[in-house]
Design a protein around this nucleic acid. Sequence first.
DNA 1: TCAATCTGCGCAAACGATTGTGTTGACACG
DNA 2: CGTGTCAACACAATCGTTTGCGCAGATTGA
Lengths: 342, 342
Amino acid sequence: MNSRPRNSLKLISEKFGVSPTTVSRVLSGQAQKYRISPETEKAIKDFAAKENFTPNPIAKGLRLKKTHTIGLIIPDIANPFFAGIASQVVNVARTHGYSIVLCDSEENPALEKQSIELLWARQVDGMILCPVGQTPDYLERYAREQRPLVLVDRVFPGLGLPYVSADNFTGAKNATAHLLDNGHRRIACLQGMVGTAPSEARVGGYTAALKERGVPFDPRLVVGDSFGEQSGYLDTKLLIRATPDITAIFAMSNLLALGALRALREENRSVPGDISVIAFDDQPYLAHLSPPLTTVAQPHLEMGAAAVKLLLDEMRAPSSATKSGLYLPTSLVIRQSVRKLD
Amino acid sequence: MNSRPRNSLKLISEKFGVSPTTVSRVLSGQAQKYRISPETEKAIKDFAAKENFTPNPIAKGLRLKKTHTIGLIIPDIANPFFAGIASQVVNVARTHGYSIVLCDSEENPALEKQSIELLWARQVDGMILCPVGQTPDYLERYAREQRPLVLVDRVFPGLGLPYVSADNFTGAKNATAHLLDNGHRRIACLQGMVGTAPSEARVGGYTAALKERGVPFDPRLVVGDSFGEQSGYLDTKLLIRATPDITAIFAMSNLLALGALRALREENRSVPGDISVIAFDDQPYLAHLSPPLTTVAQPHLEMGAAAVKLLLDEMRAPSSATKSGLYLPTSLVIRQSVRKLD
DNA sequence: TCAATCTGCGCAAACGATTGTGTTGACACG
DNA sequence: CGTGTCAACACAATCGTTTGCGCAGATTGA
């Protein structure tokens, strides 16, 4: 009733009067190495093709201790940024013969840790992780244990784990420079979760640009503590009350920008008439907002692809000398949310 | 070097001077059923907890022919609609002890078929599929083979497979009625891929609403053949040339609406001043467009959750009498893209 | 005292592949 | 005729679990 016999090496071998060994060797292309006769080989191959039989990966996994499976942990797969990463991870992995087991940590460090353990227990060959929190703690252990694990986006350099991230520093620096070029001097900065590498790097780029132009840095202009829409909304509201002289807002995520727009609309500030806005991370719909938003585009597709490739390297070489991090360049997409001041 | 010994029943059993059988029974909660002494039980349990050992799922899968794994095939994980479904699938599956193997068919029927085969070969216990094409052909086989498989969104009723979808008919009907209520009579309809259930149902709802109000149906007003942005853009362009008297556009997807907006902007038609627009499928950013778009919200989170539950049912009951389909209600989200005509 | 019952486990065969090491029969060569 | 070579495979162990029986010793009842 519940049994779905399917095929197996044994079944096939009986059908041809040979041993499972022979079938296995034929199907793994070792036929001539083991001098299987061409007739036997052809018969078996034809049959396998007709039934499109593949040796059971579970049994294979048990024997070979390789599951051809990669774990992927994402803080929120419904977030387009991460969905984009995931899509490339899935596709590149597939072309290399790997399947993806997907976990969603729901922006929850505890669940993230749990998922990591789950995936290792499930014998994945390697893992790609977009960490959620600030504290790597247990990640360090995996680094020591030499497990194939690569970090994406919210990376932790210095942990001894390979990682790939956008060049947040330069991206933010260029965006800020763009605002400065357009005459803005009082530029507010809606940052993301403090302590995370992307947020720190972006704020770093922001201050670097200011310093380069000799514009004084005002700590009151750097606000926020989350990448979410709520935070963008609230902090923008507070901002235009506390420092009404700002002429531009640099929102360090997509959602922060949306929140900012909502707040500005409620406060009857026009964009870019009264206040210019730059977002971080491009998404198709940003072009359709009112106004179309200027933003720093992250190469999130490339990030996903790069992560898989780094991981594959890591998986074949038990662990080369130093784990290399990878920063991918961003690009400034100029639309219509920045006004030129005179 | 490559060997990661880890733990195993055998290792643990040797540590406690018992047999692997005993350890297995303790860890699967069969201790008293097999009269394992409380001391032995506790010792083993404590050790397992400390090392947080779990019996190797691969070996378990081989023995039990159950992998506690569900396959999920999505046409495009980067599409927020599908990403939303996926997020719920992952989460609900997790709470039931199942992991998700994710495949992306890239809107490609051939790749879809290939992915299905891959997943079955990988011994998934069940599968959730968002089909891409119009022709079910090979799906029928799985229905006959009684495999646990549930369809989502682009469903095929009458195939003998359980499915879950939004109530596209009623959703479209209500949206059209909303336009009619606002005085619109010449309502164009940007449909999706013809032959797919969602598109047919939505067009069905549209015509039903017209008929109910006695508004004549004009076939020239129903155009398009894809859910993509390009199609929305192009067909809108053509539409306002061919039938300039339209006062409203019902775009039957998100992306179609974006395309329509782009075309209308280029043609200098204001929304909703000159032309009203209703979209299908709500996404957070629609509220931030100019103007905020009125749309038919699909319960895509619920759809994902329902799919998993249907699948779990299917997996425990080899196959009850008739496979039931499930239509989840939509809701009309009224924003500012529909103008009241007088 | 002997059989019956109970306690507390162990044996060994799967599950479906992979692999190092045989084994067998045919043929060649000297 | 003896031996060596070669073609064409087969054996059996192994990966880590689960599970239907089975079994030895202790206790109990009559």
